[in-house]
């Protein structure tokens, strides 16, 4: 078991949430709820698990992450910025004309973005294609696909899950940001996808449950997923999260996926997240 400084990761995650919110606030548009639920997952991957080089984003044999839930990209921009792919202040142009920081990720505009996503479900399938390519080329890298739970309502996810099992993609790790909410409400009510782990298990995946806001749990799960290499089975980590995690009035609120805070809410949220920048 490698030694890990969870407090350091927590501090990074606080910064990531604050920068994501600052950018959303400046744009007066964006998705804070889904960005905050996925933040710790992204920090765990980019600050601990993934073999990447911020100075050489296209490094051969790097690990790849496709943010299939592309609307949460403020969290990814903030994570990449914090990790050194670019100056994090650049992302304050989020969603403005001429910005490299599009409302949904564009791989051709921003370093470190592995795939342009936004239309839900596709990123998962594209990541499966990347994992097949790695297998063909006998590469050792991992390909991660990060999805929402509402996103699992897209049929292409399950088409791609069949492919991942067929091609024995033990280099493919899907992480479900299980925050339980989608724009129209509770996922269980809108169109239930639970039990997520059992569905993936029946599709031929190794399944791991994790607490998506606890670094010990998350990193343990990712370590275990990597250790599945050699089993010939893809892995899904179902990470229980809270939409809007870190800000009391956004937490578990269905209304927060798709709107920016007002001035008062912004002040309050920044205070809760850890003070002035």
């Amino acid at each position: 078991m490698k030694e890990r400084n969870y407090e350091e990761l927590q501090a990074v995650a606080r910064k990531v949430r604050m920068n994501a919110l600052r950018a959303i606030y400046a744009a007066n548009s964006g998705h804070p709820g889904g960005s905050f639920s996925v933040t710790d997952i992204l920090v765990a991957l980019y600050f601990d698990e993934m073999n990447i080089d911020p100075k050489n984003p296209k490094m051969e044999d790097r690990d790849k992450l496709v943010l299939s839930k592309g609307h949460a990209v403020p969290a990814l921009y903030a994570t990449l910025g914090e990790r050194g792919f670019f100056d994090v202040e650049e992302m304050m142009t989020l969603r403005q004309v001429d910005s490299h920081f599009q409302g949904h990720p564009n791989m051709n505009k921003c370093p470190g973005i592995e795939m342009s996503t936004g239309s839900l479900g596709q990123g998962f399938s594209v990541a499966v294609g990347m994992a097949i390519a790695s297998k063909m080329d006998k590469k050792d890298n991992f390909v991660y696909a990060v999805t929402g739970d509402g996103e699992l309502q897209e049929g292409i996810i399950w088409e791609a899950a069949l492919s991942a099992a067929k091609y024995q993609l033990d280099n493919f790790i899907a992480i479900v940001d299980w925050n339980g909410l989608q724009i129209d409400g509770n996922v269980d009510v809108v169109k239930k996808v639970a039990p997520i782990d059992e569905k993936f298990a029946s599709f031929g995946f190794n399944t791991i449950m994790a607490d998506g806001h606890d670094f010990e749990s998350l990193l343990g799960a990712i370590d275990q997923a990597k250790a599945n290499k050699g089993t010939g089975k893809p892995t899904v980590i179902v990470a229980k999260t809270h939409k809007g995690q870190g800000v009391s009035f956004m937490t578990d609120q269905a209304g927060w996926p798709g709107k920016a805070p007002n001035a008062e809410q912004f002040e309050q949220a920044m205070k809760e997240l850890g003070g002035e920048m």
């Binding site: 791989m107 594209v126 294609g129 994992a131 390519a133 292409i156 492919s163």
Partner: peptide
């Protein structure tokens, strides 16, 4: 749909 999305992943690799 899966085929063309996977095709993108393969091509981008």
């Amino acid at each position: 749909q899966d085929m063309y999305a996977e095709a993108a992943g393969l091509a981008l690799s």
